[in-house]
């Protein structure tokens, strides 16, 4: 059963003459419990797809379904409890003057959920932090710890789906490995469905089982990660991406 279903999603910005279509007939499905990757260069529209699902844009056209239910254009509490997003930059996504406890308590407060103390303690240990982090401010945390807090904030409402927008691109490789392991563990333990945007094919190959490649607002192809790794991509753009991330060399075959 498809957890996320996207059918002929279109989105444009601007009016009349200066109208720019940023998503052109995007279609794909993500199964329950699957980890699905969206790759492409900046400006290809991959983050925009996430934002439509997260409810940050409301003027899209087409059909979005979560767990079989059609999504409306406006955000409601119910949707927030099922879909949560983790942003790219943990330095920008946490309020600098809120402690970890305030940041994690806010979603609970909005949704009228009690037992703040216990829930916050439980979620912190789930993401590998302990209780001593509760009263710290973001500037007292390292990049990796901040991203753990951001993941905890997304998980505290116990969503079924996590939208991950380049969750490790602002982190060092050593810290990236920790966060990727954490994400893999959480998905297994909690049965979450991931939709992850990234431009790093290594990260996709590690975490995702299927991938959609986007360019200029269109999905070029959707393929199995195993095929991607074996180099069985059919689209020339996908092949170019693969060769770039394999060689990263000074030969200019991908320039």
């Amino acid at each position: 059963m498809a957890m996320i279903e996207i059918q002929s999603l279109n989105l444009s910005f601007g009016l009349d003459g200066s109208r720019v279509q940023v998503l052109k007939d995007v279609n794909f499905q993500v199964r329950e419990g699957e980890s699905f990757g969206l790759v492409g260069e900046s400006g290809s529209g991959k983050t925009t797809v996430l934002r439509c699902l997260a409810g940050q844009y409301s003027h899209w056209e087409g059909e979005l379904r979560i767990n079989g239910e059609r999504l409306g254009r406006t955000l409601d509490r119910d949707r927030c409890r099922r879909v949560q997003m983790v942003f790219q930059d943990p330095y920008g996504s946490l309020h600098p003057r809120h402690t970890v406890e305030t940041a994690l308590g806010e979603p609970l407060h909005i949704h009228g959920i009690g037992q703040h103390r216990e829930r916050i303690g439980a979620i912190l240990s789930k993401v590998g932090l302990n209780d001593s982090f509760r009263y710290r401010y973001p500037h007292q945390l390292s990049g990796g710890q901040r991203q753990r807090v951001a993941i905890a904030r997304a998980l505290i409402l116990e969503p079924r789906i996590l939208l991950l927008d380049e969750p490790t691109s602002a982190l060092d490789v050593s810290v990236q490995a920790e966060i990727l392991n954490l994400l893999a563990d959480l998905r297994q333990r909690e049965g979450l469905t991931y939709l992850m945007v990234t431009h790093d094919l290594g990260v996709v190959a590690h975490l995702c089982s299927r991938v959609a490649v986007m360019q200029h607002g269109k999905v070029l192809e959707t393929l199995d990660t195993n095929d991607l790794v074996r180099g069985e991509a059919s689209d020339p753009y996908t092949r170019m991406l693969i060769s770039c991330s394999q060689h990263k060399s000074r030969d200019r075959d991908c320039a």
Binding site: S174, Q176, H206, I242
Partner: peptide
């Protein structure tokens, strides 16, 4: 620690 396209590992 680098995730790689060619050598995939569980963790």
């Amino acid at each position: 620690a680098l995730p790689s396209l060619t050598q995939r590992r569980e963790r």
